[in-house]
Amino acid sequence: MVGAYAITIHVDLMRGGDAIDVAGQVDLAQVPSATRRSFHIIELARAHALRSEDVAVVHLLAKAHKASPDTARYNPCTRSTVEQLATSGPALVRDDARALAEAIGVMTV
């Protein structure tokens, strides 16, 4: 769990690269709580967002939604990020972001 929270600390300090490095050493599948696992996946998506890695962001947010739909649905960062990528993100991710935005209830397609 310490490694998982290190991801959040690095993201809060705007050190996305450090968060991604830590995440490479953390096996979030071992986190027993789906809610916590989803939260930490969202934090990793935030780290990738700091680096403008939109494909990774959408992939990770979809993974967080799959792990715990309610956690992703009610997370403010997830909601705003998905809506932004669905409406004005790169064409490569827009369709996936729209589908996720619909799934979490921030927009209807």
Rank of each mutant, 00 (worst) to 15 (best):
F39C: 02
D96A: 13
A67R: 00
R51D: 05
T71K: 06
A86C: 06
I41K: 00
A62K: 13
R94T: 12
V26Y: 02
I20A: 11
A72T: 03
R79M: 03
A97T: 03
Q84I: 15
D27I: 02
P90V: 04
P32C: 09
P69M: 04
L50S: 07
A23P: 01
M107C: 05
A62E: 12
R46E: 08
E83T: 10
E53T: 08
A6S: 11
R37P: 02
V55P: 07
I9R: 12
V93L: 08
G24K: 04
L28S: 01
T81V: 09
G24L: 02
I20K: 07
C77K: 12
R15P: 07
V93Q: 05
R36V: 07
A86R: 02
T87G: 15
T87C: 14
N75Y: 13
V11F: 04
V31K: 02
A86H: 00
T81D: 11
M14P: 10
H48C: 08
R73L: 05
G24E: 03
I7A: 02
S33I: 04
R15Y: 08
V82K: 01
V109F: 13
R46N: 05
R73P: 01
A67K: 00
Y5M: 10
G24V: 04
A97H: 03
V22M: 04
C77L: 15
C77F: 13
D54F: 09
G3A: 06
A23F: 04
R36L: 14
S80R: 10
V22C: 04
P69L: 09
S88H: 06
A67I: 00
V26G: 03
G105Y: 03
S52H: 13
K66D: 13
Y74V: 14
I9F: 15
I20H: 06
R98L: 06
L100M: 08
E102A: 12
V57H: 04
D95W: 07
P69E: 10
D96M: 11
G3R: 01
H59M: 13
E43F: 02
H40T: 04
Q25Y: 10
A72C: 14
H65Q: 12
V58Y: 00
E83I: 13
A29G: 10
V31E: 07
A45R: 02
I20L: 10
S68G: 07
R79A: 05
D70A: 10
